[in-house]
Design a protein around this nucleic acid. Sequence first.
DNA 1: AGTCGCGCCTGGCGGC
DNA 2: TGCCGCCAGGCGCGAC
Length: 270
Amino acid sequence: MPELPEVETTRRGVAPHVINQTLTSIVVRQPKMRWPVPVDVLQSLIGLAVNNVSRRGKYLFLETERGAIVIHLGMSGSLRVLTHYVEPGKHDHIDIGLASGACLRLTDPRRFGSVLWQPVGEELSLISSLGPEPLTDAFNADYLINRSQGRSVAIKQLVMNSHVVVGVGNIYANEALFMAGIDPRKPAGKVSKPKLTRLVAAIKKILSAAIEQGGTTLRDFVDSDGKPGYFAQSLSVYGRAGEPCLVCNKELTEVRMGQRSTVFCSRCQR
DNA sequence: AGTCGCGCCTGGCGGC
DNA sequence: TGCCGCCAGGCGCGAC
């Protein structure tokens, strides 16, 4: 499941093949994704060039002079560049043909992903309501302390809320809370300032390390039909319920929080 | 306004 | 072997 590091790695991998390329064809085989794919608008873009590939949270933007094709990879999506024809498979929903002869192909078995259209000058409300990027200075200790103030929601859910900060999915939330020594169930407003400060640092550290690793494990976005090697990095708690804590050896606990699996060490995280 | 629970979807897995 | 049922999970939305 792509989290922010995978999305950023996708952006970097795809950008050089797409930037300054004119769109020559758009084929939508499956318009039913998270929201209906705006097929007509996409078709009308043929002849325009992609000026830039940017990212906000887990959303990717293929920017043209008229606006941006906004792509979210959901749980199971991937984007890759094909430099020669490859027979589309069952889950290859959209092909974006480029003047170079290459093709940008969106694959998404579970179709939790989405493709939207954002006209130039009109930010989608779902984008404008997003919190700061976790790797910028706007996401700092003071900010998180402020947003946690008086909140009864569990700190894990707060940090996974994209209106608070973008790009922290379930896996990295588990890992960051472990690194910061915080019980994921603790009401956000009751987590101490020093711990929130550590949490901000942990999120930045984990996400940037994952992006760095993504550069090596997910390097090949061209012509590869293999699955990208997500999460090659070692995880301390996620997926390790019942196994010993790497720090204190106590058996890791698993609970469900908002229908998501949450793993933590009840000794190290309080 | 904050919090909670729902639903979208399918590959993979455990159980029989 | 084959089939069935269940689960994961991002995230916007509607309900309280």
